[in-house]
Computed example of a mutant assay.
Amino acid sequence: MATISNFSSNPSSSLSTIHKTNFFFSHFSILPFVSKRKPPATKLRTNRTQFLVTKATAAPGTKKARRDERVQKVHSIEEFDEALRTAKNKLVVVEYAASDSSESSQIYPFMVELSRTCNDVEFLLVMKDESEKTRELCRREKIEQVPHFSFYKSLEKIHEEEGIGPDMLVGDVLYYGDNHSAVVQLHNREDVEKLIDDHKADHKLIVLDVGLKHCGPCVKVYPTVVKLSRQMADNVVFARMNGDENDSCMRFLKDMDVVEVPTFLFIRDGKICGRYVGSGKGELIGEILRYQGVRVTY
């Protein structure tokens, strides 16, 4: 877990529409599928993700029949810059690869499959050893090792990764470019208050995922949040806020006594009824079920 080090030990007053609890809920033994031991905060799995079709496609540099038509091949600095300008505020995922890299060949098929399911994200491929023009591009972008993934929004590089597997790639794409899921994106305190007011009448449980922009555990658990938001849409509202997006978000985290991320706040009828701190998928599901009144026995 990441720690928000600049929080004071005595948080300021709560939101007028939210009554803050001063305790953390522990994990309950009534949930047999929930581990009592929290997973390591920084150990990220690189197994094949279940959010993708894992049938491999052809490696970079080979002929493919329309399978990777959404992955744009970039051959020069000019083409690269134009692709970023055309994408505007969409997330752009760039894979830097090489024809003699087995790691590039292994990860590329998963990017192809991901491109077919995320229509609001643009995907680019740069073959470092294709020509002097692509080598020049890689020098400008300071790419030394491949495969290397860079993430851009509005012409700005917002994140980059090296040596990642399919799980991490999916998590990054969802986390930094999530405009298509049922997770409500919150950008300030006013957004939180409006969401709470909107669901006072229907008494739905709100699960607020609080994280930071560059938090590995936050990225790791987010695909689970997206999946649950689709499966539980009738009864649960899922929302997300990055605490370091702006001052308003950071003040909200401080008011809610959030000192580690990811933290999940459970809100019903305008009140915080509990929280879960951590990135354990099973534990998160168990806590959501518990606040939904579902009792699981052995």
Rank of each mutant, 00 (worst) to 15 (best):
P223H: 11
F149R: 03
E156M: 15
D197H: 14
Q185Y: 02
H203K: 12
G163I: 11
Y175N: 03
V184H: 03
L228C: 08
V173P: 07
Y176E: 03
E190W: 03
E193Q: 09
E160L: 06
D244Y: 03
E190L: 09
G165S: 01
C218A: 10
V183I: 05
V219A: 07
V207H: 09
D234V: 12
K220G: 12
H187A: 06
L155D: 02
N179Q: 01
L205G: 02
E162G: 11
N188V: 02
P166M: 03
I158G: 00
H199D: 01
Y222Q: 08
A182P: 06
D191Q: 06
D202G: 06
H214F: 10
L195K: 04
V236Q: 01
D172L: 07
I158L: 02
C218L: 11
R230D: 15
E161N: 07
K227S: 15
C215F: 12
D191S: 10
L212V: 12
Q231T: 13
K204N: 00
A201S: 15
H159K: 07
V226M: 09
D234C: 12
Y222F: 13
M232F: 08
D198M: 12
V170G: 04
G171H: 05
D244L: 02
F238T: 03
G165Y: 07
L212A: 10
M241K: 07
I206N: 09
R189L: 10
R240Y: 00
V237T: 01
Y176P: 05
L169W: 04
N242Y: 07
V192A: 07
M168G: 03
E156P: 05
V170F: 09
N179S: 04
K153R: 08
K220Y: 13
G163F: 11
C218I: 12
P166H: 01
E162S: 14
V226K: 07
L212P: 06
F149M: 10
I206Y: 10
N235R: 14
D247V: 09
D244H: 06
E245L: 04
L174D: 04
M168S: 09
I196D: 06
I206G: 09
F149I: 05
D172I: 04
L208R: 05
I196P: 00
G243M: 06
K213V: 08
E156V: 15
D191W: 06
V236S: 01
L212N: 04
H187Q: 02
G163Q: 12
G163D: 04
I206H: 08
L195Q: 06
L208A: 06
P166G: 02
K213Q: 15
A182Y: 10
K227R: 12
V207G: 04
Q185N: 04
D197W: 12
L186M: 00
F149Q: 12
V184W: 02
E156C: 14
N188Y: 01
L228E: 09
K200Y: 10
I196Y: 05
C218T: 12
Y152F: 07
S229V: 06
V225R: 08
L174F: 08
Q231R: 03
S150I: 10
